[in-house]
Amino acid sequence: MNTIIYLVRHGDSPKEGNERTRELTEKGYRDAERVAEVLKEENVDVVASSPYRRSVLTVEKVAKKLHKEVVIIEGLKERIFSPEGTRLSDKELAPLLERSFLDPNFSLKGGESNNECQKRAVKVVKGLINIYEGKKIVIGSHGAVMTLIMNHFDPRCDLQFLNNTTKPDIYKLTLHHDELMDVERLWESV
């Protein structure tokens, strides 16, 4: 029996602010509507999300169209890059990500490594697979943690893969127990 997971990277969000509370830009809200349109015919059983506001807002419309609640799961949050909870600039983040994919145990003081983040998030995903085996699960996510979850099942999902994702993005993973059978990208940028 196959379980389907739709990993949804959040839509465009403001460049400044707290990691937990940043919402979506106007484009992000428009794209969230498109995400709901893409997923409305998928017969989704469960909608889960990172607790970060931009992820919840990206999948909230999917849940509403399907008359479901968004299940917030702390373990799905983005990789913790800095202890302060403020967004790192793209200029600061790029070399940090590069180093992290070369050395999965690397982290800034008070931050989280790729290995730590992956272990945390994959544990949640495997728990969801156990609870909802044979069902369809939407997960509101972020770029790094989404890539690390996918990397667990397919090592080809690496820094280059992350750099080629968009905001938002949708990947449909077909799993038999916890073995990856297929990956399909459902999002088309306009």
Rank of each mutant, 00 (worst) to 15 (best):
M1S: 13
T3R: 10
I4A: 10
R9I: 06
R9L: 03
H10S: 06
D12I: 02
S13N: 04
P14I: 09
P14R: 13
N18E: 10
E19R: 14
E19G: 13
E26F: 01
K27P: 00
G28C: 02
R30W: 01
D31F: 00
A32Q: 03
E33I: 05
R34D: 00
E37V: 01
E37I: 00
L39M: 04
E41H: 10
N43M: 10
N43Y: 09
D45P: 10
S49Y: 02
P51N: 14
Y52W: 03
V56L: 11
E60A: 08
K61R: 08
K64H: 06
K64L: 08
H67T: 06
E69T: 13
V70R: 06
I80P: 03
T86P: 03
R87G: 05
E92K: 15
A94W: 03
L96A: 10
L97N: 08
E98M: 09
R99L: 07
R99A: 05
F101C: 02
L102E: 10
P104S: 08
F106M: 02
G110Q: 08
C117Y: 03
R120S: 03
V122K: 02
V122T: 02
V122N: 02
V124G: 07
V125S: 07
K126P: 01
G127W: 06
L128W: 09
I129V: 15
I131Y: 08
Y132C: 07
G134I: 11
I137W: 11
I139P: 00
G140T: 12
M146K: 04
T147A: 13
T147V: 12
T147G: 14
L148S: 06
L148M: 06
I149Q: 05
H152Q: 04
F153M: 07
P155W: 07
L159R: 04
L159T: 01
L159F: 03
F161K: 12
L162E: 08
L162K: 06
N163E: 04
N163C: 02
N163P: 00
N164A: 09
K167V: 00
I170R: 05
L173K: 00
L175S: 05
L175E: 05
D178L: 06
V183N: 05
S189T: 07
